[in-house]
C-alpha cells in the first residue's frame, strides 16, 4: 500500500501549480495510469481523498485515464495492444514481446484551476 505516499506526491505537486497562480482553486486533477505502474487505481482514489482532506483540494475531482499495455510487436513491426498483463503477446498475431511501449505510465497530466 504505497498509494498514500503517491497521493501525497500528487497533492504536493498540484498545490505547487495552484500557488504559482495565486492560490487558484483546484477543480480537477488528471492522471494517466498504466497497469504496469505498480499502482492500484481504486486504492489511489481512496488514498487521494484521504490526502486531500482539509487541504484546498478537498472535494476536487480526480480524473484517471487508464492506459492499456501496448508492445512493439517484432512480427507486425508496429505498436500493438498486449493480450493482458499476464500475457505480453501481440493481440493480433500472438508473438510474445518484452518491448513495452505503454502501460508503465504514472503521470500527472493536467490540473484544472479557477484563478
Amino acid at each position: 500500500m504505497h498509494e498514500l505516499s503517491i497521493a501525497m506526491s500528487i497533492l504536493d505537486r498540484v498545490l505547487e501549480e495552484s500557488r504559482a497562480r495565486g492560490d487558484a482553486r483546484v477543480e480537477a486533477v488528471y492522471l494517466r495510469i498504466g497497469p504496469l505502474s505498480g499502482v492500484d487505481v481504486e486504492a489511489l482514489r481512496f488514498a487521494f481523498e484521504v490526502a486531500c482532506e482539509e487541504s484546498q483540494l478537498s472535494g476536487c475531482r480526480l480524473e484517471i485515464t487508464e492506459v492499456p499495455i501496448s508492445l512493439e510487436c517484432p512480427s507486425c513491426r508496429s505498436e500493438k495492444q498486449a493480450v493482458s498483463i499476464q500475457q505480453l503477446c501481440c493481440s493480433d498475431c500472438g508473438t510474445p514481446s518484452p518491448e513495452i511501449v505503454h502501460g508503465r505510465e504514472l503521470e500527472l497530466r493536467a490540473v484544472e484551476l479557477v484563478e
Binding site: E27, L106, E107, L108, R109, A110, E112, L113, V114
Partner: peptide, 17 residues
Amino acid sequence: MNRPRLVEVRENILKQN
C-alpha cells in the same frame, strides 16, 4: 467568476525518485 482553466503538467508522479 473566472472559468476553470486546464493547466498541462505532463510529469511523472515519482519524478523526484
